[in-house]
């Protein structure tokens, strides 16, 4: 390994004369923990979370940005982690499904999905939860038609979406309290 740490304080964070298989050390915050991992440039953020951070709650359903199962929050914004390279996450604050609950206490969205049967096989659930967290944190009062449109970002094959919408509406009401 010939790579040296990628630091943003470095004025010229460019890399010359490297082999393609060279790996970079990147440092970012995941669910509040600062982590440094060593990755190839081609490593997606999703793969880095799953394989280098051991956070397998982020799922891969299509790897081309349509299904949304891999949705995570980067600096509180929902993004498709299959469409971002891990090296691009240097210095960011990443939140995944594993960071939602505080100890035994589920996040209001997790609780609402449980109460309202907002999941069946559960594969799309982490992506929907993170998408919904990203939406509700910015717009706690979002109206149903707009919410429906925003939640149309992700695919679910089991629920027909009805209970997902119901769950998110219930969580929104709870989070406004």
């Amino acid at each position: 390994m010939r790579s040296k740490p990628f630091t943003l304080s470095c004025a010229r964070a460019t890399f010359y004369d490297r082999d393609m298989s060279d790996k970079y050390d990147i440092t970012f915050t995941v669910n509040g923990d600062k982590r440094t991992i060593r990755v190839e440039p081609r490593r997606s953020l999703a793969d880095a979370l799953r394989e280098d951070c051991g956070l397998t709650g982020t799922h891969l359903g299509c790897e081309h940005g349509v299904c949304g199962a891999c949705t995570v929050l980067i600096d509180d914004q929902p993004v498709r982690s299959c469409l971002m390279f891990a090296v691009q996450a240097e210095g960011t604050r990443v939140r995944t499904v594993e960071g939602l609950a505080i100890g035994d206490k589920l996040h209001p969205l997790q609780q609402a999905f449980w109460d309202h049967h907002g999941l069946q096989c559960g594969f799309c659930t982490p992506g929907f939860l993170m998408l919904a967290v990203g939406i509700l944190e910015r717009r706690p009062d979002i109206a149903e038609p707009e919410l429906r449109e925003a939640l149309s970002s992700n695919l679910c094959r089991c629920t027909g979406y009805q209970n997902i919408l119901k769950s998110v509406l219930a969580a929104a009401a709870e989070m406004r309290k």
Partner: peptide
């Protein structure tokens, strides 16, 4: 569905980017 290997550059300025380009 993983990409082929590539070299990665993260320029900080337009001039750096143009040089790399």
């Amino acid at each position: 569905m993983k990409p082929v290997s590539f070299r990665y550059f993260a320029p900080r300025t337009v001039d750096q980017a143009l040089e790399l380009l």
